[in-house]
């Protein structure tokens, strides 16, 4: 879709699909780099005017069965590092736009929730180990999306547990169960907010979190008339995080709207309206605007004003 929308703007575009990496040809020397794709198209580093970095993933990579599992793991690590290097190159040349590759790492879950308290209702949370959590049913989240198990094919999805049963030997992130009954999400693109909510409630879906559903993109979403003032608060919040792009998740209900998390490189394609493609257009417009350049000096401001000088909290003895 990005290619089509760029063509409407007579904007040449070249896409590198990392999961089809073996079908491209690539070379990088001190003179610069060049890609060739199987369709005969090519791009060189000196011809690029903007770079949009999305979620490079080699999971379920097709058309590549060569080598041992160790060979494959080593190659995937090299490829991931290479695309990071490409992003670094783009940033160093002032060409990286809108989406910060290191955003999910720079703006982690705990930072998100701490700053979000200034703008939204945020269910109480705690993280730690070496302690026994108090009794009660709460949500367990992960700080990362790393896969578990020998096959690296299992994940810990958001779920509720009796927290006093959590082993004290492991680090946990637990959170009070949010009020509300219906999931909502907002795509944020440089000050513009696009809100959506699920047509069915969590109870109707029979889930604690819609993201664990198979084929969840088939569930119906509808435009969400956000509560008055929410879009403005999201804009200030994202500015405080130093993010120009992200997808924020909320849960709504009679008691109000509670913040769950923001993904700085979130997916949004299934939410868009075929034909008009307002979300894709917003992203393309922003990515083509030099004002969206990622400088590499983005920071999250946890406090509005620096603290006045007080006692220094270091013991150098």
């Amino acid at each position: 879709m990005f290619v089509e929308l760029c063509s409407e703007r007579a904007q040449p575009v070249f896409r590198f699909n990392i999961d089809l990496w073996a079908q491209y040809r690539f070379a990088w020397t001190h003179e610069g780099f060049a890609f060739h794709d199987p369709a005969g198209r090519s791009v060189t580093s000196d011809s690029l005017t903007a770079v949009l970095w999305r979620r490079p993933s080699l999971r379920d990579c097709p058309d590549w069965d060569g080598g041992s599992p160790d060979d494959r793991a080593a190659t995937e690590a090299e490829l991931h590092t290479l695309v990071r290097e490409l992003a670094d190159w783009a940033r160093a040349h002032g060409l990286l736009r809108l989406i910060e590759p290191g955003g999910p790492r720079r703006v982690g879950r705990l930072l998100q929730m701490r700053i979000a308290r200034d703008f939204f209702a945020v269910p109480e949370w705690g993280a730690g180990w070496g302690l026994r959590w108090p009794p009660g049913r709460r949500m367990v989240k992960r700080l990362t999306t790393e896969a578990l198990g020998e096959q690296r094919d299992r994940y810990i999805f958001v779920q509720s547990v009796e927290t006093d049963r959590l082993s004290p030997d492991w680090p946990w992130l637990v959170q009070e169960i949010a009020f509300g009954s219906r999931d909502a999400t907002v795509l944020y693109v440089r000050g513009r907010c696009f809100g959506f909510e699920m047509q069915r409630t969590r109870a109707e879906l029979g889930v604690e979190d819609w993201r664990i559903r198979n084929g969840a993109h088939k569930d119906a979403w509808r435009a969400w008339s956000m509560p008055e003032g929410l879009a403005g608060r999201i804009d200030v919040y994202m500015t405080r995080l130093g993010l120009q792009f992200g997808r924020l998740d909320f849960i709504t209900g009679d008691e109000g709207t509670a913040f769950l998390e923001v993904n700085p490189n979130g997916q949004f394609g299934w939410l868009d309206t075929p034909g008009g493609w307002p979300l894709h257009r917003a992203v393309v417009d922003a990515a083509l605007d030099p004002a969206s350049t990622i400088r590499g000096n983005e920071v999250a401001r946890e406090i509005d004003e620096p603290r006045e000088m007080g006692p220094v909290g270091f013991d150098l003895g």
């Binding site: 367990v140 578990l148 198990g149 094919d153 299992r154 994940y155 810990i156 999805f157 779920q159 547990v161 049963r165 959590l166 082993s167 004290p168 030997d169 492991w170 664990i212 198979n214 084929g215």
Partner: peptide
């Protein structure tokens, strides 16, 4: 009977 991380893990789909 304590819950460990692996005991909460599932295959996504």
């Amino acid at each position: 009977t304590d819950i460990t991380p692996v005991s909460l893990a599932t295959r996504p789909h």
